[in-house]
Protein backbone atom coordinates (compact mmCIF):
# COMPACT_ATOMS: atom_id res chain seq x y z
CA UNK A 1 0.00 0.00 0.00
CA UNK A 2 2.72 2.39 0.91
CA UNK A 3 4.56 1.73 -2.34
CA UNK A 4 1.41 2.22 -4.40
CA UNK A 5 0.74 5.52 -2.71
CA UNK A 6 4.14 6.84 -3.63
CA UNK A 7 3.56 5.73 -7.20
CA UNK A 8 0.27 7.57 -7.30
CA UNK A 9 1.80 10.76 -6.04
CA UNK A 10 4.51 10.57 -8.67
CA UNK A 11 1.92 9.98 -11.33
CA UNK A 12 -0.08 12.93 -10.13
CA UNK A 13 2.93 15.18 -10.47
CA UNK A 14 3.58 13.88 -13.97
CA UNK A 15 -0.04 14.42 -14.92
CA UNK A 16 -0.03 18.00 -13.66
CA UNK A 17 3.12 18.50 -15.66
CA UNK A 18 1.36 17.33 -18.80
CA UNK A 19 -1.56 19.68 -18.24
CA UNK A 20 0.76 22.62 -17.69
CA UNK A 21 2.78 21.95 -20.79
CA UNK A 22 -0.40 21.55 -22.83
CA UNK A 23 -1.61 24.86 -21.42
CA UNK A 24 1.58 26.65 -22.41
CA UNK A 25 1.53 25.17 -25.86
CA UNK A 26 -2.10 26.23 -26.31
CA UNK A 27 -1.31 29.68 -25.13
CA UNK A 28 1.67 30.46 -27.32
CA UNK A 29 1.60 28.27 -30.41
CA UNK A 30 -0.30 28.92 -33.55
CA UNK A 31 -0.44 25.86 -35.70
CA UNK A 32 -1.15 25.80 -39.40
CA UNK A 33 -4.42 23.96 -39.81
CA UNK A 34 -5.47 24.57 -43.42
CA UNK A 35 -4.22 26.03 -46.69
CA UNK A 36 -6.10 27.03 -49.82
CA UNK A 37 -4.07 27.63 -52.94
CA UNK A 38 -5.71 29.37 -55.87
CA UNK A 39 -5.06 31.83 -58.65
CA UNK A 40 -7.17 34.37 -60.41
CA UNK A 41 -6.83 35.16 -64.06
CA UNK A 42 -6.67 38.91 -64.71
CA UNK A 43 -9.16 39.39 -67.54
CA UNK A 44 -11.88 41.77 -68.69
CA UNK A 45 -14.29 40.57 -66.00
CA UNK A 46 -12.25 42.62 -63.52
CA UNK A 47 -13.10 46.33 -63.67
CA UNK A 48 -9.98 48.49 -63.79
CA UNK A 49 -9.07 50.73 -60.88
CA UNK A 50 -9.64 54.12 -62.51
CA UNK A 51 -7.26 55.89 -60.15
CA UNK A 52 -4.43 53.65 -61.35
CA UNK A 53 -5.37 54.09 -65.02
CA UNK A 54 -5.44 57.86 -64.53
CA UNK A 55 -2.14 57.78 -62.66
CA UNK A 56 -0.19 56.27 -65.54
CA UNK A 57 -2.13 57.93 -68.38
CA UNK A 58 0.51 60.64 -68.99
CA UNK A 59 3.18 57.93 -69.38
CA UNK A 60 0.89 55.92 -71.66
CA UNK A 61 -0.03 58.88 -73.88
CA UNK A 62 3.58 59.78 -74.43
CA UNK A 63 4.48 56.17 -75.16
CA UNK A 64 1.53 55.60 -77.51
CA UNK A 65 2.38 58.68 -79.54
CA UNK A 66 5.62 57.06 -80.68
CA UNK A 67 4.97 53.34 -80.28
CA UNK A 68 1.71 53.03 -82.21
CA UNK A 69 3.46 53.79 -85.50
CA UNK A 70 2.80 51.00 -88.02
CA UNK A 71 5.98 49.55 -89.52
CA UNK A 72 4.65 46.78 -91.76
CA UNK A 73 1.84 44.21 -92.06
CA UNK A 74 2.06 40.47 -91.49
CA UNK A 75 0.00 37.87 -93.34
CA UNK A 76 -0.33 35.76 -90.23
CA UNK A 77 0.51 35.62 -86.53
CA UNK A 78 4.14 34.58 -86.09
CA UNK A 79 4.90 32.50 -83.02
CA UNK A 80 7.93 30.75 -81.57
CA UNK A 81 8.59 27.07 -82.02
CA UNK A 82 11.52 24.69 -82.33
CA UNK A 83 13.60 23.50 -84.12
CA UNK A 84 12.64 26.38 -86.43
CA UNK A 85 9.62 28.63 -86.71
CA UNK A 86 8.42 31.33 -89.08
CA UNK A 87 9.16 33.80 -86.28
CA UNK A 88 12.71 32.57 -85.65
CA UNK A 89 13.42 32.52 -89.40
CA UNK A 90 11.98 36.01 -89.77
CA UNK A 91 14.05 37.31 -86.83
CA UNK A 92 17.30 35.93 -88.17
CA UNK A 93 16.67 36.68 -91.87
CA UNK A 94 15.48 40.25 -91.23
CA UNK A 95 18.66 41.05 -89.33
CA UNK A 96 20.80 39.38 -92.00
CA UNK A 97 19.05 41.37 -94.74
CA UNK A 98 19.60 44.71 -92.99
CA UNK A 99 23.26 43.95 -92.34
CA UNK A 100 23.84 42.82 -95.94
CA UNK A 101 22.27 46.04 -97.17
CA UNK A 102 24.57 47.94 -94.81
CA UNK A 103 27.54 46.11 -96.40
CA UNK A 104 28.50 44.18 -93.28
CA UNK A 105 30.43 41.06 -94.22
CA UNK A 106 29.49 37.78 -92.53
CA UNK A 107 28.98 34.13 -93.50
CA UNK A 108 25.98 33.20 -91.38
CA UNK A 109 23.85 34.59 -88.56
CA UNK A 110 22.76 33.50 -85.11
CA UNK A 111 21.53 36.86 -83.79
CA UNK A 112 19.64 35.55 -80.76
CA UNK A 113 18.78 32.38 -78.94
CA UNK A 114 15.21 31.19 -78.94
CA UNK A 115 14.87 32.57 -75.41
CA UNK A 116 15.83 36.02 -76.70
CA UNK A 117 12.72 36.15 -78.88
CA UNK A 118 10.45 37.65 -76.26
CA UNK A 119 7.00 37.56 -77.81
CA UNK A 120 5.03 36.66 -80.92
CA UNK A 121 4.08 39.07 -83.73
CA UNK A 122 0.38 39.56 -84.47
CA UNK A 123 -1.38 39.13 -87.79
CA UNK A 124 -2.00 42.48 -89.50
CA UNK A 125 -0.38 45.74 -88.49
CA UNK A 126 3.02 45.44 -86.80
CA UNK A 127 3.76 48.51 -84.70
CA UNK A 128 6.95 49.90 -83.25
CA UNK A 129 5.62 48.63 -79.92
CA UNK A 130 5.55 45.07 -81.32
CA UNK A 131 9.16 45.44 -82.42
CA UNK A 132 10.17 46.62 -78.94
CA UNK A 133 8.30 43.75 -77.30
CA UNK A 134 9.81 41.22 -79.73
CA UNK A 135 13.32 42.52 -78.97
CA UNK A 136 13.22 44.68 -75.85
CA UNK A 137 16.96 44.47 -75.14
CA UNK A 138 19.45 47.13 -76.13
CA UNK A 139 21.96 44.59 -77.50
CA UNK A 140 24.07 45.42 -80.54
CA UNK A 141 25.12 43.21 -83.43
CA UNK A 142 28.73 42.06 -83.70
CA UNK A 143 30.65 39.86 -86.13
CA UNK A 144 32.70 37.09 -84.52
CA UNK A 145 35.48 35.27 -86.41
CA UNK A 146 35.26 31.58 -85.51
CA UNK A 147 37.63 28.77 -86.50
CA UNK A 148 35.88 26.08 -88.56
CA UNK A 149 36.67 23.57 -85.81
CA UNK A 150 34.48 25.58 -83.41
CA UNK A 151 31.47 25.51 -85.74
CA UNK A 152 30.84 21.87 -84.79
CA UNK A 153 30.72 22.96 -81.15
CA UNK A 154 28.23 25.65 -82.11
CA UNK A 155 26.17 23.05 -83.97
CA UNK A 156 26.20 20.88 -80.83
CA UNK A 157 24.84 23.81 -78.80
CA UNK A 158 22.05 24.33 -81.36
CA UNK A 159 21.19 20.62 -81.21
CA UNK A 160 21.24 20.46 -77.40
CA UNK A 161 18.86 23.41 -77.23
CA UNK A 162 16.51 21.83 -79.78
CA UNK A 163 17.16 24.40 -82.53
CA UNK A 164 18.07 28.09 -82.58
CA UNK A 165 17.34 31.01 -84.95
CA UNK A 166 19.89 30.95 -87.80
CA UNK A 167 20.36 32.23 -91.35
CA UNK A 168 22.63 30.84 -94.08
CA UNK A 169 23.19 27.82 -91.85
CA UNK A 170 21.66 24.44 -92.58
CA UNK A 171 21.87 21.73 -89.98
CA UNK A 172 20.43 18.24 -90.16
CA UNK A 173 20.83 15.74 -87.36
CA UNK A 174 19.92 12.07 -87.45
CA UNK A 175 20.20 10.25 -84.16
CA UNK A 176 23.45 11.28 -82.56
CA UNK A 177 25.26 12.50 -85.65
CA UNK A 178 25.23 15.57 -87.86
CA UNK A 179 24.28 14.47 -91.38
CA UNK A 180 24.34 17.92 -92.98
CA UNK A 181 26.07 21.15 -92.00
CA UNK A 182 26.10 23.80 -94.70
CA UNK A 183 27.21 27.42 -94.42
CA UNK A 184 26.35 29.56 -97.45
CA UNK A 185 25.26 26.26 -99.03
CA UNK A 186 28.85 24.94 -98.77
CA UNK A 187 29.99 22.08 -96.52
CA UNK A 188 31.88 23.08 -93.40
CA UNK A 189 35.66 23.38 -93.83
CA UNK A 190 37.43 22.85 -90.54
CA UNK A 191 40.47 24.91 -91.55
CA UNK A 192 38.47 27.93 -92.68
CA UNK A 193 37.53 30.92 -90.50
CA UNK A 194 33.83 31.78 -90.45
CA UNK A 195 32.23 35.11 -89.67
CA UNK A 196 29.07 34.83 -87.58
CA UNK A 197 26.67 37.72 -87.13
CA UNK A 198 25.44 37.64 -83.53
CA UNK A 199 24.67 39.93 -80.60
CA UNK A 200 27.16 41.37 -78.13
CA UNK A 201 25.15 39.60 -75.41
CA UNK A 202 25.78 36.15 -76.91
CA UNK A 203 29.35 37.07 -77.90
CA UNK A 204 30.08 38.04 -74.27
CA UNK A 205 29.02 34.63 -72.96
CA UNK A 206 25.27 35.16 -72.61
CA UNK A 207 23.19 31.95 -72.71
CA UNK A 208 26.37 29.88 -72.45
CA UNK A 209 27.43 29.48 -76.11
CA UNK A 210 30.92 28.19 -75.33
CA UNK A 211 31.87 27.98 -79.04
CA UNK A 212 31.86 31.80 -79.11
CA UNK A 213 34.72 31.80 -76.58
CA UNK A 214 36.93 30.48 -79.40
CA UNK A 215 36.44 33.69 -81.43
CA UNK A 216 39.71 35.05 -82.77
CA UNK A 217 38.33 38.46 -83.66
CA UNK A 218 35.26 40.60 -82.94
CA UNK A 219 33.97 43.50 -85.04
CA UNK A 220 31.34 45.88 -83.71
CA UNK A 221 28.60 46.99 -86.10
CA UNK A 222 27.13 49.65 -83.77
CA UNK A 223 23.68 48.50 -84.90
CA UNK A 224 21.14 47.49 -82.29
CA UNK A 225 19.50 44.11 -82.90
CA UNK A 226 16.08 45.75 -82.61
CA UNK A 227 16.98 48.56 -85.01
CA UNK A 228 18.05 46.02 -87.64
CA UNK A 229 14.60 44.38 -87.38
CA UNK A 230 12.79 47.72 -87.51
CA UNK A 231 14.81 48.79 -90.56
CA UNK A 232 13.88 45.56 -92.36
CA UNK A 233 10.19 46.02 -91.56
CA UNK A 234 10.20 49.59 -92.82
CA UNK A 235 12.01 48.58 -96.01
CA UNK A 236 9.50 45.82 -96.70
CA UNK A 237 6.64 48.24 -96.20
CA UNK A 238 8.28 50.80 -98.54
CA UNK A 239 8.71 48.07 -101.16
CA UNK A 240 5.01 47.28 -100.89
CA UNK A 241 5.60 43.87 -99.33
CA UNK A 242 4.10 42.20 -96.26
CA UNK A 243 5.86 39.85 -93.88
CA UNK A 244 5.58 36.32 -95.18
CA UNK A 245 8.36 34.18 -93.68
CA UNK A 246 8.55 30.48 -94.55
CA UNK A 247 9.65 27.29 -92.91
CA UNK A 248 12.44 25.84 -95.06
CA UNK A 249 13.83 23.02 -92.93
CA UNK A 250 17.09 24.84 -92.15
CA UNK A 251 17.22 22.91 -88.89
CA UNK A 252 16.08 19.31 -88.77
CA UNK A 253 16.64 17.21 -85.68
CA UNK A 254 15.55 13.57 -85.95
CA UNK A 255 15.99 11.43 -82.87
Amino acid sequence: MFLVNIKNQTLRLITIGIILSTTISCHTHLVLSKENVSQRKIDSTIISDEAITAYYLPYKKSLDSSMNAILVYSNEELTKAQPESKLSNFFSDAISATCKQRKIAFDFALPTTNGGIRTSLPKGAITLRNAFELMPFENELVVLYLPGSSITKLAQFIIEKGGQPVSNFILEVKGDSISTLLINNQPLELTKTYRVLTSDYLANGGDGIIAFKDAIKKENTNIKVRDAIIEYMRNEQSAGRTLNPMLDGRIKIEK
Binding site: H27, L30, V31, L32, S38, Q39, R40
Partner: peptide
Protein backbone atom coordinates in the same frame (compact mmCIF):
# COMPACT_ATOMS: atom_id res chain seq x y z
CA UNK B 1 0.57 39.77 -64.61
CA UNK B 2 -1.81 37.37 -66.38
CA UNK B 3 -2.60 35.71 -63.06
CA UNK B 4 -2.58 36.69 -59.41
CA UNK B 5 -1.47 33.83 -57.17
CA UNK B 6 -3.10 33.38 -53.79
CA UNK B 7 -2.39 31.18 -50.79
CA UNK B 8 -4.71 31.40 -47.77
CA UNK B 9 -3.28 30.07 -44.51
CA UNK B 10 -5.42 29.30 -41.48
CA UNK B 11 -3.65 29.08 -38.12
CA UNK B 12 -5.28 27.78 -34.97
CA UNK B 13 -4.33 27.75 -31.30
CA UNK B 14 -3.82 24.03 -31.08
CA UNK B 15 -4.24 21.77 -28.04
CA UNK B 16 -1.42 19.62 -29.25
CA UNK B 17 1.65 20.88 -30.88
Amino acid sequence: GINLGRVDYYFEYARQR
